[in-house]
Amino acid sequence: MQVLFKKDKDTLTAYLNGDIDHHTAKSIRETIDSEMQRLMPGKLRLDFKNVHFMDSSGVGLVMGRYKTASVYGCAVSVCEMPSSVEKIMKMSGLGKIIEFEKD
């Protein structure tokens, strides 16, 4: 799983790619956290357009980034979710604390 980043003004977008499970979550987490520490953005956007599978490890990943980001005063949002990803995100109740961006 590779993660591509784009920084636009104060917003850092992480483009996730491939499957997110317990096996891949660790390296994604480390990649995002180090980029976040390096750039100190005001907002972190997680783009799921190219994520074809995600289980509850992905929910944990987003929850964890939300916790880490709030230490820096950074907001987190998720966007471009395929229906399968959206289903598990909605079920988890994450929408109560994290913005689900709509186009």
Binding site: R29, S57, G60, M63, M91, S92
Partner: peptide
């Protein structure tokens, strides 16, 4: 370590 605690809930759902 970022475990969501949702494993069984997801399986049920």
């Amino acid at each position: 370590d970022d475990r969501s605690g949702l494993g069984f809930s997801v399986m049920e759902c």
